[in-house]
Amino acid sequence: MSLMREKLENTNEVVFTAEFPSLDGGGMAKVVKNAARLAPWFVGVNATDNPAAHAHASNTASAIAMKMHGIEPIMQIVCRDKNRLAIQADMMGAALHGIENISLLTGDDVTAGDEPETRRVFDIDSTQAINIARIITTGKYLSGRKIDPAPDFYISAVENPSAPPFDYRIERALKKYRAGAKYLQLQICYHPERLEKFCAGVAKIAPDLKLIPTIVLVKNAKPMSFMHDKVPGIDIPQDTIKRVSSASDQAEEAYKLTVELAKHAMTLPSVRGLHVTDFRHDDSLDRFMYDLGQKPRN
C-alpha cells in the first residue's frame, strides 16, 4: 500500500507533499541530491509531466528514479501531450514499477512553454483520465481488454480554488471525486477567503475527498509578481504583494506571510495536509516545517 494512501486513509496525520525538481541533466546524482533534501519532510513527492509545457525527463522515468532513491512518487499525467493510449500506457508503466500514486491533470497549454508551436493533444480531459485510472483498477483498459491482476492505484487530481467560476470549482471537485480521485492537491492560492469557501463547499458535498492546498515559499516579492502577472489562474492581491515588497526585510516578511497562509489553510475543513513548493530554498524549508510543528521523518 502506498504511504500516501496509508496516511490519508488510515490515520489523521497531516500529510506534506512537494514537487520534485524537473530533471534535465546531471543524471542520478541530481536525483540523489534532491531526494536527500525532500525525504525528511514529505510523504509523497510529485513526479511532474512536462510542467508548464516545458520538456524534461519523463514523468515515468522520474518517478522510477525517485522510487529508487527512497522517495514515494506521486506520478502526474497531463492530458496535453498524450492521447488516451499513451496515458493508459503511462498508467500501466507506473504499475509495472510499483508506482501507485497517480495524479491526473489537464496541463498548462503549450503556449505557456518554450515550444508554443507544438500540437496540443487533449484527446481526453483530466476528469475522463481520472475515470480511466479508476477503470484500470477494476481490471480492464478503456477498450474493455482485461488486465489481470488489476493495478492498485491511489488516484488523485488537482483543482484551482482561486480561479473563476468559483462556485463551479466545488462541483468540479465532486465530479473528480466521483470519477475516482481520493484527494486533490490545490493550486497556489493567495486569497484565504476563497480557499475557505472552497474547502467548506467540498467538505459539504464530498466529505470523503481530502484536500491538500499548496503553499509556496518565496524569498521576496518578485516571484509573487511573476506568478500574478504570468501564470494564468493565479491572482495575488496587490496589498499582499505590497506587504512583502515594502518590507525592510522582504525575505522575513514573505516567510511570515507564508506561515500565516499555511497555518490558516491547515485549519480548514477537509484539509489533510499541505503541498509545499519552495524554489529550492533549503534553509527556509526546514525552518518552515519546524514552525508548523513538524519533525523530520526518520
Binding site: C79, R80, T106, D108, D109, T111, A112, R120, F122, D125, S126, T127, Q128, V158, E159, N160, A163, P164, P165, Y168, R172, K175, Q187, P232, G233, D235
Partner: peptide
C-alpha cells in the same frame, strides 16, 4: 474550448474570467 475540455474548465482561467490560451 482551446483544450476541447468536455467536463469543466481547466485551472488556468484568468482573474477576469478569460481563457488561459486566448486571453
Amino acid at each position: 474550448c482551446p483544450k476541447t475540455l468536455r467536463n469543466g474548465p481547466c485551472g488556468g482561467v484568468r482573474e477576469n474570467g478569460n481563457c488561459e490560451v486566448i486571453p
